[in-house]
Amino acid sequence: MSTMAFLKRSPWILHYDASSCNGCDIEVLACLTPLYDVERFGIINTGNPKHADILLITGGINELNKAVVRNLYEQMPEPKVVVAIGACAATGGIFRECYNITGGVDKVIPVDVYVPGCAARPEQIIDGVVTALGILEEKRMKMSGAAQTKEETRHAVGEST
């Protein structure tokens, strides 16, 4: 409906630590703090999937986390983007061979942006989120297009019934 892209100016993030070593994890939090202050870009760490647009995942996926990550992803309303932060989230990193690590986040949910590094620096995380914004905007466009066609078909159906 609206052609204004507010989404790009107000990406709310959800951060989940899926068996990360805390390295990337605390760097994500560091992004919020005065030195990096991602609120400059309108980013808020919501901590609630229902409010979030961007899912930041640090760390590889382990046995227990699979369901959690899937659940969080499902709970986020469209359009949404997943950013895998750090080597572990991308591939499992140094823990790839551990018996309890399934691998990168993309083993469980689709990942849109990979941020390299161990630990990924705040600047890299900011870059990652900025990259995600572009994808988010694409998805929004796609969604509103889809919604429109859906609405039209519904109208058509509604009239016929």
Binding site: G59, N62, L64
Partner: peptide, 14 residues
């Protein structure tokens, strides 16, 4: 707990 258990103690053998 167990959400971050990776099993890295075993990596010592690798």
């Amino acid at each position: 707990i167990g959400y971050i258990h990776r099993g890295l103690e075993q990596l010592v053998q690798k």
